[in-house]
Amino acid sequence: MFNSQAPAPGDLPSSKQLVKSTVIAAAAAAVILVTVVLPSEYGIDPTGTGSMLGLTEMGEIKTQLAEEAEADLKKTQEMQVPAATGATTQQGSGLMDRLIHEFGVRAAFAQEMRQDEMSVALKPGEATEIKLTMTKGAKATYEWIAEGGVVNFDMHADGNSGETTSYEKGRAKPSGSGELEAAFDGKHGWFWRNRTDADVTIKLKTSGAYSDIKKVM
């Protein structure tokens, strides 16, 4: 068994050194909070550093997606009707009706083909978002152009049951095109932001299996 030798009083940090170390650590944490955490997570950029590092846009997108997911979840909860308790035959009939209704709606959405064009003007710093209402597996082709400049974008989706996903992101892009396949039932589309010093007009063309197209912001 060994007895450890107690350190000499001179080897221990003084109270002043401990206070100084604590203050330095707190200041460093505050700097990281203001310059990195707030811009990247909440889109709050009091110093402007987040914009320089590209973190502010990330936080704004996260906040926007979180708000939309919460709003969709509330709508879903409001639309849910408690199942009635009754005889076995009534429950079976109700279940069959719901299945027929659900698959009937899905089939109608899947077969509905449409074409649309939309145009949105964005001043410097402004953003917009356009969403398609699609069922899982439905496909739509798209093409968008930023006339007058370039934009940052996020092609993403918010599900009816709270799901979220991002299909593609880009910075300083003049255009985009391709095919969008819905990962789940819900709203699927694009978020654009004009980070230039000039006005930009977004022109979007879509064609495919979706029931609605709407500018949500």
Rank of each mutant, 00 (worst) to 15 (best):
2 F>C: 04
7 P>K: 07
8 A>W: 03
10 G>A: 14
12 L>V: 15
14 S>T: 14
15 S>N: 07
16 K>F: 12
19 V>E: 13
21 S>H: 12
23 V>I: 10
24 I>S: 11
30 A>T: 04
30 A>D: 03
31 V>F: 05
32 I>Q: 01
32 I>P: 05
33 L>M: 13
35 T>A: 04
37 V>P: 02
38 L>N: 00
42 Y>A: 08
43 G>H: 00
45 D>I: 00
50 G>A: 02
54 G>K: 06
56 T>V: 00
57 E>C: 02
58 M>H: 09
59 G>K: 00
61 I>R: 00
64 Q>K: 01
65 L>S: 15
66 A>K: 03
69 A>W: 01
72 D>L: 07
73 L>G: 05
74 K>W: 11
74 K>D: 08
75 K>V: 15
77 Q>E: 09
77 Q>P: 00
83 A>G: 09
83 A>H: 14
83 A>P: 04
85 T>Q: 15
88 T>H: 08
90 Q>V: 04
90 Q>S: 12
95 L>Q: 11
96 M>V: 10
100 I>S: 15
110 A>G: 12
113 M>Y: 13
115 Q>I: 11
117 E>K: 13
117 E>Q: 07
117 E>H: 10
118 M>S: 07
121 A>H: 13
122 L>E: 09
127 A>P: 00
127 A>T: 05
133 T>P: 07
134 M>V: 09
134 M>Y: 13
137 G>C: 11
137 G>T: 15
137 G>M: 13
140 A>Q: 14
140 A>L: 13
143 E>N: 02
145 I>A: 12
147 E>K: 05
147 E>M: 06
149 G>E: 12
151 V>S: 10
151 V>L: 14
152 N>G: 13
155 M>Y: 05
156 H>E: 02
160 N>I: 14
166 S>K: 01
168 E>L: 13
169 K>N: 11
171 R>S: 13
173 K>S: 12
176 G>D: 08
178 G>C: 08
179 E>A: 10
183 A>F: 09
187 K>V: 06
187 K>I: 09
189 G>R: 00
189 G>S: 08
198 A>Q: 13
199 D>F: 08
201 T>S: 09
208 G>F: 12
208 G>I: 13
209 A>W: 10
213 I>F: 14
213 I>A: 12
215 K>Q: 11
216 V>R: 01
